[in-house]
Design a protein around this nucleic acid. Structure first.
Lengths: 132, 132
DNA sequence: CTTGACCTTGTAGTTGCTACAAGGTGCATA
DNA sequence: TATGCACCTTGTAGCAACTACAAGGTCAAG
């Protein structure tokens, strides 16, 4: 299949696929006489894997690790578990941060009853003091 | 105060302060004979404002808006409220996304009882099929 | 007078794409 | 046969918001 078909099949832009190839995240495709890239089902599977991992928030570096691990059938699962656990922890940290943020923003909205900036609690709470 | 002091006072790197000046987020500092930047309390207030807004997740463009709004005491508060509300909505969307992510990652961890990659449910669920 | 901490400018790197530009290929239609 | 259009190629530059140098100037202490 050509790059456009692979792109459609995986919901990835062709440019992104070429980028992955440059970065060594995906193996290079075969080339036709026209020099067009020609992809196999293996490529489809690999790209699906990569996209899924990226959607789950793994960095490119982590995706590389996952790919490397997945290529050795007899590697211990532990290494994969560790990466997933790491990512889970990271996601939980972000959720906590965002919850705190949400509370602060909500608080700000509730606190401001003024209608002119001059008395605005929001601006005030951001630390203003004749800015500029 | 010199840039290093301002940096320490606000928990910002000196390089970031210079970056803000280049970007027009902060007004340029006065210069001493030595050509060192010389900051006033107004700068301290302005930078505090900017950092606080950034910590709350506002983009540079939004910070610019907030700064512009804060400079007109008789502007209606509504415009500020709108920005804060927008950011709150965005944060809530991110939280929802991350919650979904967390659930998926947790599910993956629980699902894998194997100890070899060959039978690993995690790798399997990422869409592997002889990758590479 | 030298050491070391601080400052200056300018430029390039980070992450993960995305968006051109300038040109080649392949196929259907006039 | 021509030609139009969608698709492909490479290479380069841009995005956000910093961060990290490099090469050199300034200043106070010992």
């Amino acid at each position: 299949m050509r790059i456009g078909e692979l792109a459609k099949a995986t919901g990835t832009k062709a440019e992104t696929i070429r980028y992955y190839e440059r970065e060594g995240i995906l193996p290079a495709a075969d080339r036709r006489d026209s020099n067009y890239r020609d992809y196999s089902d293996n490529h489809l599977a690999a790209l699906t894997f990569v996209r899924r991992a990226r959607q789950l928030g793994f960095s490119m570096a982590q995706v590389r690790e996952l790919l490397a691990l997945s290529n050795h059938e007899d590697n211990p699962c532990q290494d994969v578990d560790r990466l997933v656990q790491l990512q889970l922890t990271e996601v939980e940290r972000k959720i906590a941060d965002l919850n705190a943020l949400r509370d602060e923003l909500g608080q700000m909205l509730r606190s401001c009853q003024a209608d002119k900036i001059g008395e605005c609690q929001i601006i005030g709470s951001l630390g203003r003091q004749s800015v500029m």
